[in-house]
Design a protein around this nucleic acid. Structure first.
Lengths: 198, 198
DNA sequence: ACAATACTTGAATGATTGTTCAAGTATTGC
DNA sequence: GCAATACTTGAACAATCATTCAAGTATTGT
């Protein structure tokens, strides 16, 4: 009986995400969103409650999008530390290939969102906590294989790597220079391998 | 002959800086600024051209404010690496003591500002480049004292430390936890000292 | 006391903000 | 073909945005 929806919800969400990614939450107007999604205000508010809810939906969509690629890096057949390194290489590859230099939507959001906004901050923090746990698991695997000093704390090193992601992301904003980014990761992984490296 | 200015320009700038720091550029309205500075719109536009110019002035004021403290850390009588470590300890101290968890105005700005805005991006990037140079100098000093492997590239390690600042700053937004921050820096400095540590 | 000076005030500007909703339209089951 | 359904449209909303400027006011040199 009802008239079917004409537009593709996921497509609209993806386009909205792109705008938030490029401009941040506060700098994007509803007008920007209607232009990008080709949706009239009414349809946009009908499908996604309001601007804020749409933004949160965009955050979720972004994370579920990158999570697959993280998994594929961390679950290959390579040795654990090499898999972690592959992840960071992928990260750098993505960063230098982006002509807009948008950075990471999640990191951008962390710094744009005031501390009072616990809903969004918690949401994004939890996403990175999941990645951190993945990292720790791979580091533990490295320890059990003898590739990593068993006296180091895998959880603490996972935090270092997460901080490494943040560092890369911000550094790239200041100087979009691929070799320097790789060099930073080289030196960061030096902190993992330490004395036993090679 | 002329009627003298009644308000303190620097005081107003400092207050405006606080608002930008807390809320970011886009989220702060001129109304917020007039409320914080106790200046009417007319006076505010008379002294600082407009909102954007005021923001840039706030960035400069912020940097000149922290620069002194950086200098005092890096030019003490302690050994070079210990001085660097003192800087990061100070950084963490500042972060955990801030009840608002505002982070760093410059880092926040880097991520809020779109890549097209070259004026602001360049300005902030240059500030960090100065700190990077300072770091490199201290690292060189460490090399000449034999505290750091002479085969390592001081400039590259300085970049790692800058990325470390960024990493700390963002990580703190997700989990305002002092011991974990110190642990991150411990592991980061492990990348400097490497095998020769202690 | 009196111009001259220029800082202070705050109302008013037009543009833009996020959001709503009644009217219009297309599809479905009968 | 006819209701019934509900999606689509875009004008309209009040609020807020950054900015301006004429009027008011306080100080100075004479």
């Amino acid at each position: 009986m009802p008239r079917p929806i004409e537009f593709d919800r996921d497509e609209a969400l993806r386009r909205a995400m792109g705008v938030f990614w490029r401009q941040g939450y506060h700098a994007t107007s509803v007008k920007d969103l209607t232009a990008a999604t080709h949706l009239q205000p009414g349809s946009l508010y009908g499908t996604f409650q309001n601007k804020r809810a749409l933004f949160i939906a965009a955050l979720d969509a972004y994370f579920s999008g990158i999570r697959e690629r993280i998994q594929s890096c961390l679950h290959s057949d390579d040795p654990p530390l090499q898999r972690l390194r592959a992840f960071f290489d992928m990260l750098i590859e993505e960063m230098v290939c982006d002509p807009d230099n948008k950075g990471c939507l999640l990191v951008n959001t962390l710094l744009e969102t005031p501390a009072e906004d616990t809903e969004i901050n918690r949401r994004v923090s939890d996403m990175f906590a999941k990645v951190e746990t993945e990292f720790a698991r791979v580091l533990q695997e490295a320890q059990s294989r003898g590739d990593l000093d068993p006296n180091r704390d895998p959880q603490a090193l996972a935090r270092l790597l997460i901080a490494g992601i943040y560092g890369l992301r911000v550094y790239h904003k200041t100087r979009p220079d691929a070799p320097q980014l790789h060099e930073i990761i080289d030196n960061l992984f030096f902190a993992l391998g330490g004395p036993t490296r090679h």
